[in-house]
Design a protein around this nucleic acid. Structure first.
Lengths: 211, 211
DNA sequence: GCACAATGTCACCGACCGGTGATATACAGT
DNA sequence: ACTGTATATCACCGGTCGGTGACATTGTGC
């Protein structure tokens, strides 16, 4: 008896650090994906993982460490999510078209990624910056693998153009989840997205056409 | 004396409801602009306004009402911030170019507006949706005033193109404040922005050129 | 069998949050 | 001058947060 300490009611965990860490990371993922970064706190994550928050401090040194671990586990995902190399692109425009399409497809159904991007926009920090860096690194290596020796036409500021394209894709993907539309353009069904994608394709082809 | 109640230490306010409301709205503005929506709470705003939080409940019915009031005061600002009508645009491309430039200029130095956009992306709600609506209404009426009878070239999906442009502008303006760059493109000095603006101009001209 | 570390859980702390009732104080109508 | 009301402030509540120290349980090496 001896009372006080609950006794047999609470079954302790499996006593396996690795799997516990994995559970915590997974819990952080789902919390972030479902409620966004505002709801990502020590207590919430621990509750969702079904273990004590103390373990977050012990194993990750706090929430920051946990997010960092989440980040590394995430950049691996992005690398595999981008489409595999198939036919080499014929023109630089085709190359960028592929990138835009791939990015749009990945972003559209990765709610977690959307949340993280918003997070970076909302409260920049060294931690979030690192997440961003590892993500764009993955993107760059994908580009390098696809590019071959294609070069943009002379007279076009390719880095700026590509930044514009990527910015647009990111913003619309995020807006679509948050609000269902953007600038009067409904973004709910696949048809809407195809229309948008056709437009982006067109813009890329136009700006990157030889001239 | 009866003690307890502080006594003379706290000088009550000027006892002018209008000016107090204005102070609260102004406080909400500055809090939002400086720390973002995460820090926008009853206590914070009241503290910054230098009055009691009770007044927020009395005059605005709570934080939502205050934000709503802030919103109306804000859409008025946006209307005056957009550039006045000058020479009518020669082509539809020129028209959109003007819009893009105006929007970019406004967004770049309106931190409050940037924060609100991020807010809408992070946690959509009826309130935020209303803010968005009133903002795009202001944008539309500006467009209507400028357009005259210009029409986009046949075969171009103008709404989609414009959505892409606006999305890109918004995203880059926000990213610039949050992180100082975007997709490897530094966005700190005016020169960087001019380069970006030239690119956007070019893209608009290319996609909207007659064909 | 016994010390010892690793793992897991609990109880508690101070701080802040949103929200509300009660209480002063100024002012306006009579 | 008296009363009523709008204005402003304070004190307090329950709840949640991040963070920490203490405790229980399991396994390991000797």
């Amino acid at each position: 008896m001896s009372a006080i300490t609950g006794g047999a009611a609470s079954v302790p965990r499996t006593r396996d650090r690795e799997s516990t860490e994995a559970m915590l990371i997974s819990a952080a993922r789902s919390v972030l994906a479902e409620v966004g970064f505002q709801g990502l706190g020590i207590n919430t994550v621990a509750r969702r993982a079904g273990c004590d928050k103390q373990l977050i401090y012990r194993y990750f040194g706090g929430l920051d460490g946990l997010v960092e671990a989440l980040g590394t586990s995430l950049s691996a995902d992005l690398a595999t999510a981008l489409p595999k190399v198939g036919e080499p692109a014929a023109t630089y425009a085709d190359l960028m078209q592929r990138l835009a399409r791939g990015l749009l497809a990945v972003l559209r159904n990765d709610e977690l990624l959307q949340r993280i991007i918003v997070w970076e926009l909302a409260e920049p920090s060294v931690l979030l910056t690192k997440l961003n860096a590892s993500r764009s690194k993955a993107l760059n290596s994908w580009m390098a693998a696809q590019r071959g020796d294609l070069v943009p036409p002379a007279g076009v500021d390719a880095p700026a153009v590509n930044a514009v394209i990527i910015a647009a894709v990111q913003h619309m993907a995020i807006s679509a989840r948050a609000k269902g539309d953007f600038a009067g353009l409904a973004l709910e069904t696949d048809d809407h997205w195809h229309r948008l994608q056709a437009t982006i394709d067109d813009m890329i082809q136009q700006v990157y056409r030889p001239r």
